[in-house]
Amino acid sequence: MSRRALRSLTNAGALALSGLATAIGLFFLGAILWTLVKNGVGGMSAQVFSAMTPPPGSSGGLLNAIYGSVAMTVIGIAIGGPVGMLAGTYLAEYGRHSRLSTVIRFVNDVLLSAPSIIIGLFVYQLLVVRMGHFSAIAGAVALAIIAMPVTVRTTEDMLLLVPQGMKDASTAMGAYPWRTILSVIYPAARSGVVTGLLLAVARISGETAPLLFTALNNQFWSSNLGAPMANLPVVIFQFALSPYPNWQQLAWSGALLITASILVLSIAARIIVSSLGPGGRR
C-alpha cells in the first residue's frame, strides 16, 4: 500500500472512531432515558401525586417525597441563590482584579467540583450533631451550599458580559456603584443570572448523597423543617434497593419524575442562553 493510501486510511479510521465515540455517548443517554420511560410510565397514576409513601406491599404514592424535595430545593436556592449572586457581584464588579478575588474564584471552582457527600458530612457536623436529630432544614442548608458555587460562577460570568459603556454611562450620571449595579447591570444581565439559578436548581434537585444524613427520610407527611423530611432522591434510593415490587415501581416513577424535571430545567436554561445571542445579552 502506498504511503498516501495508508495516511488517508488512518485518517478515515480515526474519524470513524470519533463518530463511533459520539454514538456511544448518545447511546447511553438514550438507553438511560428509555429505561426510565419504560419502567416509570407504567406506574404513573394520579395516586403517585396524591398518596403518601406506602409501607411494603400496599399501594401508595410519592406526595410527601415530592413535597419534601420541592420544599428543600426552594429553601436551598433561596439561601444559596442570593448569597451566590452577591459573591458573584463582588467578583465581577468590586473586586474584579484584586488578589483576593483570584483566590475566591479558585476556591469557588474547587467547591463547584467537590464531592457532594463531603458537604453532607459537613452539614451533619454543623447542624445535625448540634440539633441532636436529622432535619429538613439541615438538608436545605446542604443543598444551599451546593447551589452557591454554581450561582457565584454564573453570576460573575453573566455580569462580565454587560458592556462597560453602560456602566460608564451610569457612573457619568453620578450614580454610585451600588445604584449602577442594581439599576443598570442586574437588569441587563437578568436572563443570564436567571439561567444560572435554573441550572443551580437542576443541580440540587437530584442530589441524594448530601441528604442521606441531613434530611434523612420520613415515611409520613411532614412540613416541619425541624424534623426529618421525605424527599424523592432518598426515597428512590431506599425503594429501589428494597425487595418489594410496589416500592421498586414507585422508585422508577420517582426516577422518571425527577429526571424529566431536571432535563426540562436544563434545556430551558440552554434555550434562554441561546436566545441571548452571541453577545450574551438580550
Binding site: G25, L26, L29, N39, L263, R270
Partner: peptide
C-alpha cells in the same frame, strides 16, 4: 447539548440504571 445532558442526569439515576 445531548452529551451535556448526560452530565445533568442525577447520579442516583445512573445508580438505579446501572443496577437493574
Amino acid at each position: 447539548v445531548a452529551i451535556e445532558l448526560l452530565a445533568a442526569v442525577p447520579s442516583i439515576i445512573y445508580g438505579i440504571w446501572g443496577l437493574f
